[in-house]
Amino acid sequence: MLSRVADNLYWMSRYLERAEHTSRLLAVKLETLLEQTPREAELSWRRVAAGLSGDEHVPSAAADAFEITRALAFDPENSSSLIASLQSARDNARQVREQISTEMWNQLNRLYLRLAPMDLATVWNDQPGHIFRDAVDELLMLEGITYSTMRHGEGWYFLELGRYIERAQLLSRLLDLHFGRASRSGTAPSYLDWVVLLRFCTAFEAYCKVYTANIRRDRIAEFLLFDPEFPHSVRFAVERLTDALTRVASGAPAQRRAACERLAGRLKASVDFGQIEELMGGTIDLFLTNIMSQCEQIHEAVQAAYISYDAETVL
C-alpha cells in the first residue's frame, strides 16, 4: 500500500480515537455534573481538561462548565478539541477516499456535518451530555461499519495501529492524572471520582463483573492497566497494536520491520509482566510515563520504516 495512504489511514484512526475519547469524557462529565459538590466538580473538570488538552490549568476565565465544554468540544482553534479531531480525521479520510468504504465515509462525513455547525449555547440548558453521548454512539457505529465493510488487509491494520497507539497514550495520561503525582498533590479523588474514571473508560460494568462493585483504587488501576480482555485497558491496546505491527508492510525488508517489532515487543513485555503491587508502592507515574514514551518511539519507528523512508535506500 502507498506510504502516504498508510499514513492517512493511521492518522485518521488516531484522530477518531481521540474524538471518541473526548466525546465520552464530556458525556460522562456532563451526566455526573449534578452529583458533585462545586469543589469536587471543579477538580474533576481540571482532570478532564488536563486529560484532553495536556494543559493542567483550566484558565480562570473559563472556569464554568459551559466555557470548558465549549473549548474542549467546539473550539476550532484548540487543536485537540472534538471538532478539530473530527475535522482532521475527515481531512485524512478524504485523502484516502478510494481506500475506505463508502459506508465509512458517509458515516464520518454525516457526523462531522452535523456537529460542525452546532451551537452549544442552544442545547446547554437541555441535557447537553446528549450530544456527546450521541457522538460516542456514532463513532462506535463507524468502528462497526469499518469492521464489517473494509477488507481486513494492510490498510485496516494501519487503522488498528493508529487507534490503539492513541488509546494506550490517552489511557496512560488519564491514569496518570488519577494515580500519579498530580493526584497526590491536590485533594485525593473521592469515591465518585473512581466511578467516573471507570465510566470515562466505559469500564464500570466490566470492572464490576471482575471485581464486583467493590470500588478500590488499586483494583481499578490493575483493571485499567492490565486486564487482558477489556478493550479499554492499556494491556489490551498494546496487545492489539503489537499484533497490527506484525501484519503491516509484509514486503518490507526484514531489517526495517525488526526495528518496529522490537520496540513493540518491549512495550508488550512491560504490560504483560507488570505487577500492580509494585506500582502502587510509588512507581506508577514512572511506569505510565514510560508507556507513553514507548508509544511515541513506536510511532517514530513506523514512520521511519514504512512512511518517510529514503527512496534511495531501497533501489
Binding site: 502507498l2 498508510a6 477516499r97 508492510a249 509484509s250 514486503g251 518490507a252 527512496a311 531501497v314 533501489l315
Partner: peptide, 23 residues
C-alpha cells in the same frame, strides 16, 4: 491506486510508487 506526485519516484527511467513495503 490514487497517487499524488509526491508518492512517485522515478529512477533510471522507471516509475515507482512509494509503498509501505518498498517501491
Amino acid at each position: 491506486e490514487l497517487v499524488e506526485g509526491r508518492d512517485i519516484v522515478v529512477n533510471d527511467n522507471c516509475v515507482y510508487a512509494r509503498t509501505t513495503s518498498g517501491l
